[in-house]
Design a binder for these strands. Sequence first.
RNA 1: GCGGCCAUAGCUCAGUUGGUUAGAGCACAUGAUUGUGAUUCAUGGGGUCGCGGGUUCGAAUCCCGUUGGCCGCCCCA
Length: 434
Amino acid sequence: MAMFQTLPGFREFYPDDLARRNYLFRLWRQTAAAYGFAEYDAPVLEPLDLYKAKSGDEIEAQLFSFTDKGGREVALRPEMTPTVCRLVGAKANALKRPIKWFSIGEFYRYERMQKGRGRCFFQLNADIFGEPGPEAETELIGLLVQCLCAFGLTEQDFYVRLSDRNLWFYYLAALGLDEPRTRGVLGAVDRYEKYGDDAFKGYTEQFGALDEALKAKVLAFLQIKSLPALEAVLSPLGNDRISARLADWRKLLGNLDAMGLSRFIEVDLGVVRGLAYYTGFVFEAFDRKGELRAIAGGGRYDDLVGKLGNVDLPAVGFAIGDMTFALLLEQRGLTPSLVQAPDVYCVIGGEAERKAAFGAIQALRAAGFRVDYPLKDVAFGKQFKAAAEAGARLALIFGSDELAKGIVRVRDMNDRSERDVALGEIVAAVRDSL
RNA sequence: GCGGCCAUAGCUCAGUUGGUUAGAGCACAUGAUUGUGAUUCAUGGGGUCGCGGGUUCGAAUCCCGUUGGCCGCCCCA
């Protein structure tokens, strides 16, 4: 047994694992770039207060935090949002709008491990700053959907639930609830899907039982699954800000429809997301089978940059975690096998031939081809086997007979055909054959 | 933080009522095969049975503790 184990919840990436991870990151990067997002990065270790400021003391229990040698209270980052708010806030006046940024980074949370959750994980974070209107949500939801579709997932595999905390606030205000009670009701709404009527226990303890007629309206509202149903409930109220908000909804859904993404989107007012800092549209991606935890989540947080970056700036963002996402790809058989195959494997007759082979190997590698060869003398049969197992497309045979004639035999490992090439033309010959 | 199940080779696992030197398949390595990828066969390396303690003449096996894993609850930024 190993004398040292990895810390609980931490992960090691052997070459095959890392190849899969890199594949994830590569497609995410390409997709984010295609949508016009610029990549940034920032420290893994941050002042503890950065997270307290955003989320309160309670969050500290789930933080990897400690005191550094300079006596500073620090924490490994559990998420990107506070950091990116600080970054943007610090240069807000110098940055071209809209600010469309993304990053891929590792995050740490001191939590109990579970399926799809460890103590370290990677996330793609994408955010737009400086755009208050639903055009920003259009871009982000579009990007989110494509970040999943890029791997071959379809509307059969996942969907995005779209909701709106503003509409909840406006609606509950119109029903006569004050802000604390509104937050209490939203807490119940967040839990309703899981606990049913028990979700209102917390509210009842704090404020007393919710009026039955009011509760019926809340329950009806959280079950709304379409824009027309939403309009039917809200339009009669004749409330200006609600009307304006419905216009935002029409714009967002219209935009997404024009992008051909309607089949991924489900209006679902039952989603409010627990985070107190979300201020508008919120959205979450789930697998259709409902077997996994959320694949991605995001929403608008217009007040956070002001709080953490000292400049008022509207913002929307989302994050996709790598663990649940990898489980989904696995379930759907979409995890590719990514063997790092060489282009060329050199079969070398013996020590004398090796010298000649090195020249060609060096030239091929300098030209950018992936070239491998046995480090020590091995029987010919073994070398061909090794070439086949490595997945090489070509085998170059550096035998004594060939080298005596100044040539190398090029074997195509797929169709087993062979041809001779002058030693000096090896690079061109390989280029032609691949 | 709470609860359930689990821990034997790199992987998947077997291991009798507690009883010789703890096994198999896969994987890996070598050879049969000194110029061509398969199959097959042979051989080999690799385990203080997660760790610590206890019971016993004797523990992978029974008991206690501990660490780690899986699953669920809380939480999920």
